[in-house]
Design a protein around this nucleic acid. Structure first.
Lengths: 146, 146
DNA sequence: ATAGTTGCAAAGTGTTTGCGCTGAG
DNA sequence: CTCAGCGCAAACACTTTGCAACTAT
């Protein structure tokens, strides 16, 4: 049972229709390694079904987000990125030079912050997903050399 | 010497013209306690100078950002917020119920994360400004009671 | 059969840009 | 004087919405 099938099951159980459009959009997202913009999802689905509308893509994104099956990543660029939710919470580091993204474990790096804010301020932080910009190892090396 | 004066000095030294519009925009931002959207700045300046254009507000924001005199805060709402840069780096917790924002010290809460990412991944994170959403003390109490 | 979903087109936000005029230096 | 910066209007990029036609159930 693939991830896509699992998600389709959830949607079916919730009483949503499993339209070809929804299946294609899900497959498009699932078959990509990293995160994608709505436009990228649209383009990918278009290859097999050229009539798909960007509005349908956005509506499906909303649906999946509402059920926490999809994670929205705001890189502050004015365009959101999306990826399927995973069991283990994680965050991203994004290199501002080469654009590469590296996953970072929530438990190890951000959970301590969450705990500290709760203890100190009684503030219950929803640290669902962070995008941390910076310079990756390779680009730092290049910069030091060049 | 006020904060506004200091900023005006920087701009003058850099050869920029100190137009009334720029002075008014700066005053508007400086005289507000928290962060403001471009539209809020525009509205505030309009009260004393109704001809100010939103484009001028955006251009001034860009100018100040470029010189790191202004910090842009992306709350992921599609609308950026701005506040004057301060000496001590800080971040914000934003209550998703009541909208209240609480400052948090960089050194104490986020610097450890930065250090860990550098050590572990050789990734140099620009943790300039984070907005962390969640539930504040009061709203948590309300929720527990109600 | 029928309500949920689609494609299309249009509208809605927030932000940026081209351009001729103006005023700070 | 002169060019940086202004107001205006239009363009932009991304996302949402109203509606009639269609289709998964």
């Amino acid at each position: 049972m693939t991830k896509v099938d699992e998600i389709l099951d959830v949607l079916r159980e919730e009483g949503y229709r499993l339209t070809p459009q929804r299946v294609m959009i899900l497959s498009a997202i699932a078959s990509s390694p990293g995160h994608m913009t709505a436009e990228e999802i649209h383009e990918k689905v278009k290859k097999t079904y050229p009539y798909i509308d960007i509005a349908t893509v956005y509506r499906t994104i909303q649906l999946l987000k509402r059920h926490r099956l999809l994670v929205e990543i705001d890189l502050g660029s004015g365009t959101s990125q999306y990826e399927l939710a995973r069991a283990e919470r994680h965050h991203h580091m994004v290199c501002r030079e080469c654009g590469k993204t590296i996953d970072i474990d929530h438990r190890r790096f951000l959970e301590p912050v969450r705990a500290a804010l709760l203890q100190e301020f009684d503030f219950e932080a929803d640290i669902d997903h962070f995008a941390i910009f910076g310079l990756c190892k390779e680009c730092r090396a290049k910069k030091a050399a060049g």
